[in-house]
Design a protein around this nucleic acid. Structure first.
Lengths: 202, 202
DNA sequence: TTTCTTATTGACATTTTTGTCAGTAGAGTC
DNA sequence: GACTCTACTGACAAAAATGTCAATAAGAAA
């Protein structure tokens, strides 16, 4: 009777699958425990592989960070676009869907935490193609037809700012003033509606 | 002719001064280079003391973090209150001053970065007395007389959320859409005014 | 001046985190 | 089955960061 460690033998994945597996684990860690939990050993353990495997696929811990950002930003953009598409038939519905999508992505998913991490570490400025992607999506796609271009840009700018703020601090602040977790989001969307209407009226 | 290293001999400060000196250096690092730059050696170097000195005064790097939070939160609260006091004679002026104060503190000073760091690391939840301090200030002081208590609370909540979002991401986002750095702040304050007015009207 | 307290420090020890490497083992191809 | 390619791994090395300690010295008190 041969003695053999319980559990898996050794999983061998296609390179892309291996990378995806590790990145998924890393993303989960980032969202749940914050950027400081992104240690090589932690990520490897979460992904169920050895430390060396992570290095093998990403070269270094920084390489992993970069790949993770790219992945998350890509998902973020895709998600905003997808949710925004789902807007109803009228213009109001569509715009409502855009607001909804922003909060959904930044608050429910970990996008706000990712963005905060990028901002705090300054890695943000280095990844120019990420900026370009965001730029093209935000500026070109999310425009509002019923206000002038200038107002539209302002509206986009402030929507994203607010959604990010709410995504990052909304829950904590709501709890602080004794409100349910989603309250900041509700008030935020209401304020955006009011502001939008005011701009249309002008 | 005795050989002697150039520069200072050995500075001996009163304990509070020593702590204040180190904390000031740490705060500068945090604001300028982000939380990841808060290494023991970096802080010590920035403060012009030995690593061991930092440990001596704060016990550990975590102790330093905690003390730094306390300091910055204290400053933050004091600053908001001071700026809010400076409001002009009319009620509109005062409320304007509150908005202004929020953006000033969160955007110009590093408060938003501190808050983001706290949120990301989760240290936030541990420091209950900080939460209480914020709570008492935010909830009790910053109330708006011309709307009902419920609306007032919402207004406070959303103001802080927006100010934090703008403080953390405002510059980057503004640059992304080709606007001057202070643009997010301006639009944000405008939106708050509009929203406030809408609530008053209701 | 002498004494005493303790802030300060360099040198060192410990811990944590990252990275290297030679060898192992899946999975396809011959 | 033998061969090849390379994803994968454990063990180890290197680097980075934190923390310890005995000795030093600034400044107040005696």
């Amino acid at each position: 009777m041969s003695i053999r460690k319980t559990g898996k033998v050794r999983v061998r994945r296609a390179p892309e699958d291996a990378r995806a597996n590790i990145l998924a684990a890393a993303e989960k860690l980032l969202v749940e425990r914050g950027p400081l939990a992104l240690k090589l050993a932690d990520v490897a353990a979460a992904a169920g592989v050895a430390n060396a495997t992570v290095i093998h696929h990403f070269g270094s811990i920084d390489g992993l960070h970069a790949a993770l950002m790219e992945r998350m930003v890509g998902q973020l953009i895709a998600e905003v676009l997808a949710l925004a598409e789902k807007g109803g038939p009228t213009r109001e519905d569509t715009q409502e869907a855009v607001f909804e999508a922003l909060f959904e992505v930044f608050e429910t998913r970990g996008a706000a935490r990712l963005a905060a991490w990028l901002e705090l570490t300054g890695e943000w400025r280095r990844v120019t193609h990420i900026r370009e992607a965001i730029q093209s999506v935000i500026v070109r796609r999310a425009s509002f037809g019923d206000v002038n271009p200038q107002q539209s840009l302002d509206l986009v700018l402030i929507s994203v700012t607010l959604a990010m703020g709410a995504g990052l601090f909304g829950h904590a602040l709501a709890e602080l003033v004794g409100k349910p977790p989603g309250h900041a989001r509700e008030v935020g969307m209401e304020m955006l509606r009011v502001f939008h209407a005011a701009q249309v009226a002008k």
